[in-house]
């Protein structure tokens, strides 16, 4: 409904959006500022929107209390593997379902789509037993294998399929006449043109892996192996009370890098998501 708005209307809309922004922006601000407050100022009244005293030692304490660098690395490399693996597997499957004629392709696609109805929360008990049997408990294998092959990758396959269906088929026919086989057509023609969809898949998959919480607490037991979400909840004192400022320092370090990447690349980010097959 892009009609020109009256100045009064504009002011009203800006005002409304600013009020609505508070719960979206304030928590991040509060996390940042509280992470550098000494513990005594954390619950000060009235609340300080800007710290009255700074205490940067909280950031050092994060690394003393936990093998935080190691945990950071765990989360990062797992997310990278899951993202890369999902992009490969689901772009190949999505391409085949969209473009290649083979017997039972529709039936198989339906079976694969079933995966969307079976999130790993449903299968967590047998998954635990399977990985126990394979000696993979307290390793990162479950956190890598389950998302690459489970429901998140099915979603990715669906997004890729929708994209490839919309790609002009003549491009691939031209490539066939030009002498390419299926794999080269996929690799040199279809995939380079699928960058927006691949971008969306990468974002969804990365965030999924980065946010995993149930799986790590089920599959991992030693702090060396922990991922970030799990580690963040471990900053407690001897009595089980939360060490808020240190926990918030760790949370800040977890959140800010991804947030910065997002702000730098927000255009591609948002447009990539908007162009997934979700429009129906």
């Amino acid at each position: 409904m892009k009609t020109d708005l009256s100045p009064r209307m504009k002011v009203a809309l800006y005002g409304l959006m600013c009020v609505l922004l508070i719960p979206f922006v304030f928590p991040t601000w509060w996390m940042l500022t509280s992470s550098v407050k000494p513990i005594s100022d954390i619950f000060a009244f009235p609340p300080d929107l800007w710290p009255r005293r700074f205490d940067f030692s909280t950031y050092a304490r994060v690394f003393e209390l936990q093998p935080f660098a190691r945990q950071y690395w765990n989360s990062a490399y797992i997310a990278a593997l899951v993202t890369g693996g999902t992009m490969i597997i689901s772009s190949m499957a999505g391409y085949a379902f969209a473009r290649i004629k083979f017997p039972f392709s529709n039936a198989i696609f339906m079976v694969v789509l079933l995966g969307l109805l079976i999130p790993s929360e449903v299968t967590i008990v047998p998954l635990f037993q399977m990985f126990l049997k394979w000696g993979m408990i307290n390793t990162h294998w479950p956190l890598i294998l389950v998302p690459i092959f489970g429901a998140p990758s099915v979603f990715a396959t669906f997004v890729m399929r929708q994209f490839f269906i919309a790609l002009p088929v003549e491009l691939e026919e031209a490539a066939r006449v030009d002498g390419l086989g299926r794999f080269k057509i996929f690799w040199l023609i279809a995939l380079p043109l699928a960058k927006p969809a691949l971008g969306a898949v990468a974002i969804f998959t990365f965030l999924h892996s980065w946010n995993l919480y149930l799986e790590p607490i089920v599959f991992l037991s030693s702090t060396q192996m922990f991922t970030l979400p799990q580690a963040l909840t471990q900053f407690t004192d001897a009595y089980g009370g939360a060490m808020w400022n240190i926990q918030l320092a760790a949370a800040t370090m977890t959140a800010i890098p991804v947030l910065l990447v997002f702000i730098v690349a927000q255009k591609q980010f948002v447009e990539g998501l908007a162009h997934t097959g979700l429009k129906g």
Partner: peptide
């Protein structure tokens, strides 16, 4: 072409069977 199709979906299908349907 059909063989190529099966090869393309094989990782996904095997994964779904192993980590979703079998569980």
């Amino acid at each position: 072409d059909a063989a190529a199709g099966y090869a393309f979906i094989a990782p996904q299908l095997i994964g779904i069977v192993t980590f979703v349907l079998f569980p």
